[in-house]
Design a protein around this nucleic acid. Sequence first.
DNA 1: ACTGCTTATACAACGGATTGCGCAGGCACA
DNA 2: TGTGCCTGCGCAATCCGTTGTATAAGCAGT
Lengths: 180, 180
Amino acid sequence: MSLRHAILVLLQDEEASGYDLAREFANSIGLVWNATHQQIYLELGKLNEQNMVHYRHVPQDGKPDKKLYRITDEGRQELVRWLRRPAAPARVRDAFMVKVAGGALADPETLLGELDQLVQQRKERLANFEAEARKLERQSEGNSRFQHLTLRRGILDQEAWLAWAEEVREVLEDTLNHQH
Amino acid sequence: MSLRHAILVLLQDEEASGYDLAREFANSIGLVWNATHQQIYLELGKLNEQNMVHYRHVPQDGKPDKKLYRITDEGRQELVRWLRRPAAPARVRDAFMVKVAGGALADPETLLGELDQLVQQRKERLANFEAEARKLERQSEGNSRFQHLTLRRGILDQEAWLAWAEEVREVLEDTLNHQH
DNA sequence: ACTGCTTATACAACGGATTGCGCAGGCACA
DNA sequence: TGTGCCTGCGCAATCCGTTGTATAAGCAGT
């Protein structure tokens, strides 16, 4: 139960709309904590009721109006309390990995195809993270060092995954050759 | 929705009780797909109703009786169908990482303490995986190559995390020194 | 003109997942 | 003797999360 805290962390530096937050969850933080916009809007509603965040209504033309949320003192206090408590253990849910574990039953061609797609995606993400990291390295204010760490995690993660993918490819291609 | 498939994958090689599965979810596969015993028992019940698995009742003395589950042909067919379909995207939920992202607010000492604990845990896990991998390398039957890949993923993942942890430590210690 | 993407918010329904509780006996340690 | 941990199974309540649907307007491409 701490989508709320992830949201509060993001609101620490900037005022943002639900939509803004959804985009951030799809990128940097998304590697480590994911949420859909419905969840985010719901949670923002609750956080607002509990006075952890406040928002101001911003009319726009051309685009729909938006609500810009900012963290309150109460929200910041809650964040600090949470930071002090030990974190919940990390959870992962990677269906492709489960597939590889059960790989003996699968046909290697299909898995190889899927592997290629995933490699492609991960490479793109890696490039994004690296670009963002370079941006951050130029400007160095306040907690940019911590944001940089977030990106470093993403980078190391993608690299590790890609290295693993090459090992998987070898095994799959080998299985393929032995079948024919 | 595929805890069911993770279970079927595990039952591919061996007959197992709910308790056995729970332990496996806590270890090797657990890195990539986690589930509590309640979930597992529930899912085993459903899988049994749908004839994807069958079980035999094994009385024990000293210990409570157990149910040893095995996969059926229907279960194997369902697994193969699932393996053909594209996998759901990987999801991660790492609270400690969120903490680091919001690190500017936290006091570095507490985070450093937590970091040490996590490093300890990860190192232990790494040692376990490496030991298991060495075991598997000696004996090489059927799908042991795929099991080996599972372990390799675990190993690469821990290594990447530990490398990242060192970067985090540097930043945290630096923040600490600038405060005093 | 039509399709699809982007910005923006939100409700409703369902199913998946966690948390809490309960039972049951054995073994180890203080 | 008490405490806590391990083996084993399971129900109930609640909460989290996903999917589907809705509205609304602009902009880009075919």
